[in-house]
């Protein structure tokens, strides 16, 4: 956007909620600002340039293009890559067409997915799992053999289980954008496409571990954490350290007294707040390596948040960002369960 329109704010209405946003904001970002009826996003990642538009789960209906040109858009559009216009009216969950298309996309995403959640490390914090619960059907209509791949070790820390991949390209963008050398890409075409390193070359740089965090499913997993515990039995704790390479702001995942995993901190949309280095992620696994800041608040609605241990105790009181989800019905139900 040009400098002279910086001050101008455009109004956009999503499912009846109006908000004023800067020109250049996408529909999805605007929906996230409203905080209600946010379209799900499997491939879009606000920290990664060029991401989005691929998974089609965030499709919305634009029933009025703008105040100037009120014509509706002919097709459903990907909200993550469509920028708002002044006076735009968007329908997300209020449009049956969107709901149907989204259910279709979820069905497509699950077609070749192994649904091996019971043995998948990502279960409990998997975006596809959440999406399936919310929009999917109980039974698949797919009766053919699902595509499968051999597991591949990418370096000493990361394992690629391509069978679970939904080809969101997030890891490809991560490798491209936060590290110097590009060693990771997409091979083949169509439903035979796979993410891979060239000639299975190890992703070998200080920030490679971030591909694990950006992966929405269990395709890229932390080899130091694999099969150690279900995530909902772990206790996440905010911690920091003075790291020369990264911000040092991480989440530690405890099982008992033991730190079994270190990840970057994630915001309420499941996105990393700041990328962390491999030393923090894989090598600092003692409590003494870290300054503990307090329990992590988990916003998302999947099983992991059932363990709202932070609510059980009055102490210690940790100042926290107010969450837009605090009044969410499911949140209250969780509370009931715990009492």
């Amino acid at each position: 956007m040009e400098q002279n329109v910086q001050e101008e704010l455009w109004s956009v209405t999503i499912d009846g909620n109006e908000i004023k946003v800067k020109p250049g904001t996408t529909v999805l970002q605007a929906a996230r600002m409203i905080g209600e009826n946010v379209p799900p996003a499997m491939c879009y990642y606000s920290k990664l340039e060029g991401s989005g538009g691929k998974c089609r789960t965030c499709l919305v209906k634009v029933s009025q293009g703008s105040t100037k040109d009120p014509r509706p858009m002919p097709k459903l559009v990907a909200s993550c890559r469509t920028t708002v216009m002044d006076g735009m009216v968007v329908q997300n969950t209020t449009s049956p067409e969107v709901k149907e298309a989204r259910a279709g996309v979820v069905e497509f995403l699950l077609l070749n997915h192994p649904l091996d959640c019971p043995i998948c490390d990502q279960a409990g914090e998997c975006h596809l799992q959440d999406l399936g619960y919310e929009h999917g059907k109980q039974k698949t209509r797919y009766e053919f053999k699902r595509r499968t791949f051999e597991r591949i070790d990418i370096g000493p820390y990361i394992q690629l289980h391509m069978t679970r991949c939904i080809l969101c390209y997030r890891c490809v963008f991560t490798c491209d954008q936060i590290t110097n050398e590009r060693v990771h890409g997409i091979l083949n075409r169509g439903d035979a496409a796979e993410i891979s390193t060239y000639i299975e070359k190890a992703i070998d740089n200080d920030f490679s571990g971030n591909v694990i965090d950006v992966c929405p499913v269990g395709a890229l997993t932390d080899k130091t954490f694999r099969f150690k515990s279900r995530v909902w039995f772990t206790k996440p704790v905010q911690a920091s350290c003075n790291c020369g390479k990264c911000s040092g702001k991480v989440t530690l995942w405890y099982k008992g007294e033991e730190v079994i995993r270190v990840t970057a901190r994630k915001d309420q949309w499941g996105e990393v707040e700041s990328f962390i280095c491999n030393t923090c992620r894989f090598e600092r696994k003692k409590t003494s390596d870290w300054t503990i800041e307090g329990p992590t608040h988990v916003d998302n609605k999947s099983v992991i948040s059932a363990n709202h241990y932070e609510l059980k105790y009055d102490q210690p009181v940790i100042p926290q960002k107010t969450s837009l989800h605090a009044d969410h019905p499911s949140f209250k139900e969780d509370k009931k369960l715990l009492n």
Partner: peptide
């Protein structure tokens, strides 16, 4: 179409193969 789908977006990547089968 199944063979030629680029595999970038989910409906085409998965749907074309399904229809072929």
């Amino acid at each position: 179409y199944h063979h030629e789908s680029c595999g970038q977006c989910s409906p085409c990547r998965e749907g074309t193969g399904w229809m072929e089968k």
